[in-house]
């Protein structure tokens, strides 16, 4: 007999992440609901003793990825290739507090890392596992996200980033 974990205690944080990720309350709760349904369907695949919260976030990430893939032309990749500087028209200065607008302008892969680390406080390793990417990718996305956001919030034009290594 295996104890069935309770998903309720994870709901508030799943909702917070989904809200920040999608920027819309209704769409966020739909994503949470899809995540719960998938979690219950796959619960026997979850390893007891491992972090249930991280597992739920992994499911949510996969669902989110499917959603944005479905709404995007097949030839446009989701990876860093999309990370081209935004055009001038989109780069009017944002108010320093306009975190919502700044988040919405981040490419999704960067937004996810930004939120998993900065809001949900997962470690870099956990974020890498949730997203299914190498640690180095998490670090480079985090770096791009934070720099891009810093420039948006400061109203600076986005320039090619130099990486201090």
């Amino acid at each position: 007999m295996r104890a069935r974990p309770d998903l309720i205690e994870h709901l508030p944080r799943l909702r917070r992440y989904a809200r920040a990720l999608t920027g819309e309350a209704a769409r966020a709760d739909d994503l949470v609901q899809d995540t719960l349904e998938r979690a219950l369907a796959k619960l026997d695949l979850w390893q007891p003793g491992t972090d249930l919260r991280a597992w739920l976030f992994t499911l949510m990430h996969n669902l989110f990825l499917n959603q944005i893939r479905a709404h995007r032309p097949p030839d446009s990749a989701l990876d860093e290739a999309l990370d081209i500087p935004v055009s001038g028209g989109q780069m009017e200065a944002l108010g320093a507090r306009d975190i919502h607008a700044a988040l919405a302008r981040l490419p999704e892969p960067q937004r996810e890392v930004m939120l998993l680390v900065g809001l949900e406080q997962f470690s870099y390793d956990e974020a890498a596992r949730i997203l299914g990417v190498p640690l180095g990718t998490v670090m480079s996305r985090l770096s791009r996200a934070r720099e891009r956001m810093r420039q948006m919030l400061a109203g600076e034009p986005v320039v090619q980033l130099k990486v201090v290594k």
Binding site: D6, L7, I8, L11, P12, R13, R15, R16, R19, D29, V32, Q33, L36, E37, L40, A41, L43
Partner: peptide, 18 residues
């Protein structure tokens, strides 16, 4: 968002039998 009342449909979804 953490302090918002949980929508009851999500509470139900979290407790549904697979």
């Amino acid at each position: 968002v953490l302090n918002e009342p949980l929508p009851i449909h999500l509470v139900r979804a979290a407790r549904r039998q697979p």
